[in-house]
């Protein structure tokens, strides 16, 4: 799905004594788990729409973890607690938004962006990057895209497999 460039500009964070919840509007697909589960905290009709004082930390984490995208993610305010977070905490920033981890090690793990020229095929870009095309802009976190190199794709700028049909040879 494509959206206008200005849609991607900013995100927000909300804190209580224990955790920070990050909101990234461009990632939301309106699955609605957050407000159906916990309208006291996540109320789209209120500004600001997230109010962490509406429930306890444990319940807020539980509901943030239900978000199927990276639109909602969370971390402990006490940095040391973020290191050993288990995989079942699906929306902890370690898994959804690694660029927000404060330790250098965590950041290094996601850099640099990998650019792979496939044999007689597309270029595959993987990591945390921004793509600009047709006046649009989109940020990828731990993302992967495949871009046409043969000139024949019907889904430019992305690869749609046409290189094989036209016998593209990279020489």
């Amino acid at each position: 799905m494509e959206r206008p460039r200005n849609h991607f500009t900013r995100g927000r964070s909300y804190k209580n004594d224990e955790i920070t919840v990050y909101w990234k509007p461009d990632a939301c697909i309106h699955a609605s788990y957050c407000y159906r589960e916990l309208i006291e905290v996540f109320d789209p009709g209120r500004r600001p729409w997230i109010d962490l004082s509406g429930s306890n930390t444990e319940r807020i984490i539980e509901v943030v973890n239900m978000c199927p995208t990276e639109a909602l993610s969370w971390k402990w305010n006490e940095d040391a607690r973020n290191i050993d977070v288990e995989r079942d905490q699906t929306n902890h920033i370690k898994f959804k938004r690694p660029e927000l981890m404060s330790t250098e090690k965590a950041k290094d793990e996601i850099r640099p962006v990998s650019v792979k020229i496939m044999v007689d095929g597309p270029v595959v870009v993987k990591g945390n990057f921004t793509i600009r095309y047709n006046g649009k802009e989109k940020n990828f976190t731990n993302g992967i895209i495949s871009l046409c190199r043969c000139g024949g794709s019907n889904q430019m700028p992305f690869c749609d497999g046409t290189h094989r049909k036209i016998g593209f040879e990279d020489k």
């Binding site: 500009t9 640099p112 945390n128 793509i131 095309y133």
Partner: peptide, 28 residues
Amino acid sequence: LDENTGTSAIVEIIDNGPIKISGEIMFW
């Protein structure tokens, strides 16, 4: 929170031109 600082590289599809990639890249 500035979303623009979250990415390491920019992939730019130049109209009727090449793919420009700049930033921290590991190229294969």
